[in-house]
């Protein structure tokens, strides 16, 4: 309660000048230097993906020179070539597209499943919660990568299947998180207030409670995105990636064979993956700060 609640000044209190929510969030985000670094790295990856055809025109899977050219020796292939004479630079920039797509789409899928299951379980509780949480347990007891391998082995390793499978194996953590948020929030009086106004149950779940439950989920999404990319990479490393796309994982997987003589074939995409995943987790921390309502403006 503010000073205006004491007796003498009657009527409405003077209020601070209004600042838009986005501005406030950006100010809080900006305070975390590491998060800003993460954002810069992320923007760089996005730019690579957008400008892939400008930086390295043509099919990244076609030959552009002699095999195993070392980096910084040829103007045509600035980052060198792999065993088949394909430009590593082209692979990196075109691979950014695939990687980002995998990250974003798989994250959306897993968060969407997680939010619905977690929200329903947390809001209704009782047997609904029991059933949904036992299903979640069942998914969690199987190591997610093993499940992913199984799914890809059964349904084939096209890029669509890979993305879907990654989404399907990583919804459990968001579901538990949303459930916990809902269990706390459904006790709050504003939920009763909405019921008292006659608001329907789906509207209460998705319009009243969900916006309040989202901030931690948004932060967690950055982790899911990072792990999705790593999962795709790991699949490709095991030669289970989609061979029709130049993904970073595919590049490492193929570079592995020449690791002792031409280490750069595997190391360059490896470093790029490292930086990308790092950028997500740094941004996640910044978002955590930004979305924390207890932080100052």
């Amino acid at each position: 309660m503010t000073a205006s609640d004491t007796i003498p000044p009657q009527g409405p209190a003077p209020m601070a000048p209004q600042v838009s929510r986005a501005t406030v969030l950006w100010r809080r985000f900006r305070r975390n230097r590491a998060a800003v670094l993460g954002l810069i790295l992320f923007v760089a990856v996005v730019l690579m993906a957008l400008l892939a055809d400008v930086i390295a025109p043509g099919d990244p899977l076609s030959r552009t020179g002699m095999p195993l050219v070392w980096p910084f020796t040829e103007a045509a292939n600035p980052l060198g070539t792999d065993q088949l004479g394909r430009s590593i630079l082209a692979g990196i920039v075109h691979g950014a597209r695939v990687t980002l797509m995998v990250g974003v789409v798989a994250t959306v899928i897993s968060i969407a499943i997680g939010v619905v299951i977690g929200a329903v379980a947390g809001y209704f509780g009782g047997w609904v919660d029991d059933v949904l949480m036992r299903v979640t347990d069942a998914f969690q007891t199987i190591p997610s990568f093993v499940l992913l391998l199984t799914l890809v082995a059964i349904y084939g390793s096209s890029i669509e299947n890979i993305i879907l499978a990654i989404g399907v194996v990583s919804w459990t953590a968001p579901a538990r998180m949303v459930r916990a948020e809902f269990m706390a929030l459904r006790q709050r009086e504003f939920v009763d207030a909405a019921r008292n106004l006659g608001v329907s149950t789906p509207a209460i779940i998705f319009r009243e409670i969900l916006p309040n439950a989202l901030p931690p989920v948004i932060v967690f999404a950055s982790v899911v995105m990072a792990t999705s990319i790593l999962m795709e990479t790991a699949l490709a490393f095991l030669n289970l990636g989609d061979p029709n796309y130049a993904s970073w994982g595919n590049m490492i997987g193929q570079g592995r064979a020449a690791l002792r003589t031409a280490w750069f074939c595997a190391v360059i995409p490896g470093v790029v993956i490292l930086l990308t995943v790092l950028s997500f987790s740094l941004m996640g921390e910044g978002m955590n700060d930004a979305l924390n309502p207890r932080q100052k403006k």
Binding site: E189, D192, N196, L197, N212
Partner: peptide, 13 residues
């Protein structure tokens, strides 16, 4: 209609 105890908790933030 109802007026609740905790005005912070009963208004959706």
């Amino acid at each position: 209609q109802m007026v609740f105890q905790d005005p912070m908790a009963s208004l959706n933030p």
